[in-house]
Amino acid sequence: MLYINCPHCGLRSQNEFAYGGDATVKRPELNKEISDQEWDNFVYLRKSPRGKHLELWHHISGCRQWIKVERDTSTHEIFKTYKANEAIE
């Protein structure tokens, strides 16, 4: 079970969190004309990298904040965690 350092609460067990997918996906702006391809990329297409991956976790049984976690998908090593709108190094 992962041990995730919530930037708001500190180290907490994985079972307090829900996984939220790729954190690098950016929603297209509202009312912006975009191609089908761009929209398709946003809604459906995700990379599935082996190695470092920036992902979203939701601290549902804690502070209810969405956080960003930089994790290695093969070793589960967590390098750093960020608040929702913190700049990513």
Binding site: A18, G20, L56, I60, R64, W66, A84, N85
Partner: peptide, 17 residues
């Protein structure tokens, strides 16, 4: 109920802060 709350929090915290 629970999913909708998470959904709203997602947009407020990440998409339209």
């Amino acid at each position: 109920a629970a999913n909708v709350l998470s959904h709203l929090e997602y947009y407020l915290q990440l998409v339209w802060p």
